[in-house]
C-alpha cells in the first residue's frame, strides 16, 4: 500500500463518505416514493431496494477500513479503541435484546438497527475519550 499522509487519508475518506451517504439517502427516499406506485411491492423491487440501500453502507464500511489502514498510528489507535468499545457495547446490547426476545419479554427487534447502534456507541466513545482523532 502506498504511504499517504494523515491529510491525504482523511481527504480520501471524506471524498467518498458524503456521496455514499447521499446515495443511501436517495435509496431510502426514492424507494419509499417508488413503493407507493405499487399496490403490492414486487419481489424484484424489494431485492433492488435492499441492494441499493446496503451497497452504500458497505462502501462506507470499506472506506472506514481503508482510512484505518492509511491514517497515522495515533489516529489508528484511537479509532480502533473507539470501534472496539463500540462493538462491545453493541454485542452486549444485542445479547440482552436476544434473550429478552427468547423469553418473550419483547416483540421482534429490527435487526438493521444494530449498525446505527454501533455507530452511535462508537461515536459516543470517541467523544467521551475526548482525544479527537475524528474520522
Amino acid at each position: 500500500m502506498a504511504h499517504v499522509t494523515f491529510k491525504q487519508a482523511k481527504r480520501r475518506y471524506q471524498v467518498w463518505f458524503w456521496p455514499l451517504m447521499a446515495l443511501y439517502t436517495a435509496a431510502i427516499l426514492g424507494g419509499t416514493l417508488i413503493s407507493k406506485q405499487f399496490e403490492t411491492d414486487p419481489l424484484w423491487f424489494l431485492y433492488l431496494l435492499t441492494a441499493a440501500t446496503v451497497l452504500p453502507i458497505f462502501g462506507v464500511l470499506f472506506i472506514m477500513w481503508r482510512y484505518i489502514q492509511e491514517t497515522d498510528e495515533f489516529t489508528r489507535m484511537m479509532q480502533l479503541e473507539a470501534m472496539s468499545i463500540g462493538a462491545l457495547i453493541t454485542v452486549g446490547a444485542a445479547t440482552v435484546i436476544g434473550f429478552m426476545q427468547l423469553f418473550e419479554l419483547i416483540e421482534t427487534f429490527p435487526v438493521f438497527l444494530i449498525l446505527p447502534f454501533f455507530f452511535v456507541s462508537y461515536g459516543v466513545t470517541k467523544l467521551v475519550r475526548g482525544k479527537g482523532a475524528c474520522v
Binding site: 494523515f6 491529510k7 497515522d72 498510528e73 495515533f74 484511537m78 482525544k131 479527537g132
Partner: peptide, 26 residues
C-alpha cells in the same frame, strides 16, 4: 510540525505531552 511529518495535530500533541509513544519510524 504535523504537516511536515505527515500526521495529525492530535498525534503531535499527544506525543509532545508524553501521552503517546511514537513508533521508531515516526
Amino acid at each position: 510540525l504535523a504537516d511536515r511529518v505527515g500526521v495529525s495535530r492530535n498525534s503531535i500533541n499527544s506525543i509532545e505531552n508524553g501521552r503517546f509513544d511514537p513508533s521508531l519510524p515516526l
